[in-house]
Amino acid sequence: MAGLVVLMFVVAICLLAPVYAHSVAHVNPFSSNLQGTTMINGKRVQVLQSNTQGLGFGVTPIGPTWNLQHYFLGADNQGRDVFARLLYGGRNSLLIGSASALLCCLVAAILGIAAGYFGGPIDWVLSRIFDIVWAFPIYLLAISLSVVLLTTGLNVGPLHVGPGSLLLPIFIIAAVFVPYVARPLRGIVLSLRQREFIQAAVGSGASDLRILWKEILPNVAPSIIVFFPLMVAFDMLTESALSFLSIGVQPPAASWGTIINDGLGLLYTRPWVALAPGIMIVITAVSLNILGDGARDAFDPKAKLRGSI
């Protein structure tokens, strides 16, 4: 319950990102602001300040003002408002996390149920594919796919996805996690197949489609409901990792991962650039995991994702 409330709060403030950027902070979080100034304690100061200490090279963005009206968390090294980017980045992180989890669960449900229900050669082929992808470290698979698709985008027949599109990370992350969900679902359907009520339905001459829809799906649904929040958490963490490696969300768009990457170079001078998005990720992932645990207790105590997490 607490998980749901926290999650709703995070979603709500991220959805309000444009409102905040336009009406409260009056900034454009996507264009660099190298010469900009802002008012602190009645004094006009540069957003990017020249280094006066040490060797005096380069510039340091201003740190947190702790004032929601301007540069609450300071600026990044292009002079952009970190807090506004944090909210916009959250929209992308949450969107990619939930969209890829949805896509992943959908594809995994279709493949897992098909493999478990029809058996035979369909099951053999699908299971082998799951095995191979399963044995492949997800990060390496996601990195390979991202790297190949990064500059040209995806062009398959009528489908054109531009290189900077959010659809790219959504597709990639969904694809690499499919076996994680499909394998347990296949197992569930396989054991359902042996149960009397399914045998009875088969014996009474019901069509496959009808049995799948009326008997199998309602029995698989609880597990999918349990898996979904956990997958959103997984997918969001993966997105942030890919973005941190600069092969996820592409600039000037932001996600929590890209902001952490921006903050890497500022870690010792302006730590909040990296700290804040990380904290957001942790809060969101914790509440999603708690939600998943709650769903497990409520719907399907036996549901196990890979290694029952």
Partner: peptide, 10 residues
């Protein structure tokens, strides 16, 4: 489980 390792490292 919810902490990104690369961020924790930072």
């Amino acid at each position: 489980i919810s902490v990104p390792a690369y961020w924790l490292g930072q």
